[in-house]
Amino acid sequence: MNPTAFRTIELSDPALTPAGVHFITVKSAALRRRADITVYLPPGTKPETESLPLVTLLHGVYGSHWAWLFKGAAHHVLDRLIREENLPPIMLAMPSDGLWGDGSGYLRHATADYTRWIIDEVPAAAAEIDSRCVHSPRFIAGLSMGGYGALRLGALHPEQFAGISAHSSISDAAQMQGFIEETTAQFDLADDHPSHVLDCMKLNAHRLPPVRFDCGSDDILIEHNRTLHRELDLAGIPHTYEEFPGAHTWDYWHTHLADSLRFFARCLAK
């Protein structure tokens, strides 16, 4: 998708935002309304660098495009890894999920395609900030509902991503009922693909990019993550699963975002 496909696009003034932070509002054809994205491009990224990998970070229920930055300090994590561990420059695109109910699930609804928004339109909008991301490797990650979105969309569109990572993930849309007010029927889905991450990964098992996910040992979703890990093992689908101390909190996600970014850097180095 070309950035000119947006009927309207509004970009924040770099002089008025934190260094490297950009806010974008576009008229989304997929959602049939305006939608927001926060982009972070580390200051000092050399313009002569040909490749600028793009990491799409998906937020969880109740959140929006600013959550990874202003609750998870994603930009500070990336800056630290670049400074201390020589991580290559990476652009972060942090979109809203579309703001349906308590959370859209990044699924295709009858009234709005929250999947196409993430897969096609978010990268096109990020290219308005720096076009080098257009032909560079892309990665996807997320937390909770966003972890579900990352695992599921990455599995369904393996050709789009060089790596997939998730934290504290929901593994099936039905598990959102423990978090949201809306019922399953209210989702009014028009998605032809399975809702369970395992089934989506089985569809493209032979061509998945590298996959990792983790969960805190005190997280309310720990058993769902353990089950997904076991089922992927039984299906013979390569992946990395890790457990760390912690719960379903921003402290945990802030800490372990670094694991995702290191994982993506290793993917780039292969």
Rank of each mutant, 00 (worst) to 15 (best):
P53A: 00
D199K: 11
I24Y: 13
W250D: 09
A124L: 02
D188Q: 15
H157M: 12
R108Y: 01
Y40P: 02
S28E: 10
W253M: 09
T8K: 14
H167G: 04
A166L: 12
L198C: 08
D219E: 14
D113C: 07
F161W: 15
L52E: 01
I82Q: 15
R212Y: 10
A265K: 06
T111H: 15
T17K: 11
D79N: 07
L232Q: 13
L54A: 04
I9P: 00
A35K: 01
T38P: 01
L221T: 05
D97N: 14
R32S: 14
E223S: 05
R152C: 11
T115Y: 00
G236Q: 08
A150Q: 02
I222S: 13
L257S: 06
G72D: 07
G146T: 07
L153I: 13
A110R: 15
E10K: 09
E121P: 04
L203A: 09
D36A: 10
I82F: 06
A74Q: 07
G105P: 10
W250M: 08
R262C: 15
M176W: 07
H109Q: 08
I222Y: 13
A150P: 06
A127M: 06
R83I: 14
F139T: 06
C133V: 12
Y241E: 11
I220Y: 07
P47N: 00
G72M: 08
L261E: 08
L189R: 07
F187W: 13
T183V: 00
I129S: 00
F244N: 08
L16K: 06
K270S: 08
E10G: 04
L189H: 05
I82K: 06
L16D: 04
I222T: 15
R132F: 14
A173S: 12
S104H: 04
D36L: 01
F6E: 05
A93C: 08
T240M: 12
Y252C: 09
Y148Q: 09
G105F: 03
D199R: 09
T255Q: 14
L189Q: 04
A190E: 03
S171M: 10
P47E: 01
W117G: 03
L156E: 14
F70T: 07
L41T: 00
T56Y: 04
H75P: 00
I129V: 11
G142D: 09
R152H: 08
D120F: 04
R7G: 03
H75E: 10
T8W: 13
N225I: 11
L261F: 13
T38W: 01
I119Y: 02
L78G: 00
K71T: 01
R32D: 15
T240R: 13
H59Y: 03
